[in-house]
Amino acid sequence: MADGHNTPADRHSHHFNVRFKDNGTEEYTIYCDQPRTVLEAIKSSKRYNEQNFTDENIVILLRKTDRECAVATHFPCSCLEDGALLIISSKPQKVEEIPKNSSETVHPRSRYSVFYIESQGGKNTKTKQILRNNAIKQFTYLCVYGEKGMTVEECLKRDGRFIDDLADFKLSDSKNHDRFTEHTQKVDNLHEKEFKICLPLNKNTQSTSDTQVLKVAKQRGTSVKTLLDKSDTEEVYEMLRQQFPNLKDLMESRFPGDSYEEAVNLRRENFGKIQKSFSEVHRVKKLLELGKSVCKVVVENVCEGTGFVLFDNLILTNAHLFKDCVEGENLQEGINVFALFNYDDPEPRRNCSCFTVKNTFIDFTDCLDYAVLELNPEGRGKGATRAPEELWSSASEW
């Protein structure tokens, strides 16, 4: 006869199944006897711990009978149906910003409202970045949850997969695109509904000039150097930023709030401590001068392309230049990359400036075909396998 006492296991007992994307059709059953996040529950699996995943890079696909959707790592296990199937994979770049309060109490299912947001945005989002990592656009829906009483904006900020500065957005009903829910509304009545994120017309995600990351890019059919010589600098920069809205939004999303300015200040401080590099004044002067020109990016013995100075010692170029030369976030061992400036000079062998490129990419995205490289500040030819003059001769033949 029952003694009338309920243990935690009595109050919370269910199971779900996990499949690892790189492991065929094998499924592992997770028996959950306490309220926790899905990631905390999955980590009880020995198979998961053999994967060596990074939490922020994980993608969890929830397969349901009527839809497939990606859930956050901090999704409450209590919101999973008994016997649900989760498919786990990992991306090379951050997918989710893990919230600081991810260890907060997980409540019973009745305390939550769970709704779905389409990964492809609605009105005025075609040229805007709304997700932290576009890799999850392969899934139709992102499953979002919130305790009843929370606003839509609070839920999306905590979710971690959306960019930090969505600002004045609204949700359009997927079944009636003319019906909207504002970001200030509570989520209590959104349970099991489907939406698209919509942004205001001509929304400017650039809050201040201090967070402008993309400074120099290529104007189609026009030399950046020529434009800078003939036009007002700020006007040209604005034209260039409009050319690459997705890249601009992506780069800004990596530096929420004032963290970009802090990162730039830290970078300046670190460079000042490097005795073997340029002095600060000489380096800034040199790079500002180089910033008015495009550069030739040479992947030694492979191919060449064009690059552009972003800021400091970072350059932007195409990702396809490094096809079959990349391992994770690094260049393969033995691959040398150089940046040649002033290569359009009538006497390139005498006046060309050659910089080596660091092994690790600052940013690399195949789908948008761009890569951000960091130049070694030591200058001409240091660490190169051949002299700059020989490199120029070889590059000009490709």
Rank of each mutant, 00 (worst) to 15 (best):
V216S: 03
A217Q: 00
A217H: 03
A217S: 10
K218V: 07
K218R: 07
Q219E: 14
R220L: 15
R220D: 14
G221A: 06
G221L: 08
T222Y: 14
V224C: 12
V224W: 15
V224L: 15
K225F: 03
K225E: 14
T226Y: 09
T226H: 09
L228N: 01
L228C: 06
L228F: 12
D229S: 13
D229R: 07
S231F: 12
S231A: 11
T233C: 08
E234N: 13
V236H: 05
Y237T: 11
Y237D: 06
Y237E: 13
Y237P: 00
M239V: 05
L240K: 04
L240V: 11
L240F: 04
L240C: 12
R241W: 04
Q243D: 09
Q243F: 10
Q243L: 11
F244M: 14
F244V: 06
P245A: 02
P245S: 01
N246V: 03
L247N: 03
L247V: 13
L247I: 15
D249H: 10
D249Q: 02
L250D: 06
M251E: 05
M251Q: 08
E252A: 07
S253R: 02
S253C: 14
R254T: 08
F255M: 07
P256Y: 01
G257H: 09
D258N: 13
S259P: 01
S259D: 03
S259Y: 00
Y260N: 05
Y260T: 06
Y260C: 04
E261P: 00
E261G: 01
E261C: 07
E262Y: 04
A263R: 03
N265P: 04
N265E: 15
R267N: 12
R267H: 12
R267F: 12
R267A: 15
R268W: 04
R268I: 12
E269A: 14
G272C: 01
K273D: 14
K273T: 12
I274V: 14
Q275K: 09
K276I: 13
F278G: 00
F278T: 04
F278S: 02
F278Q: 06
S279Y: 07
S279M: 03
E280M: 07
V281H: 01
V281T: 02
H282G: 07
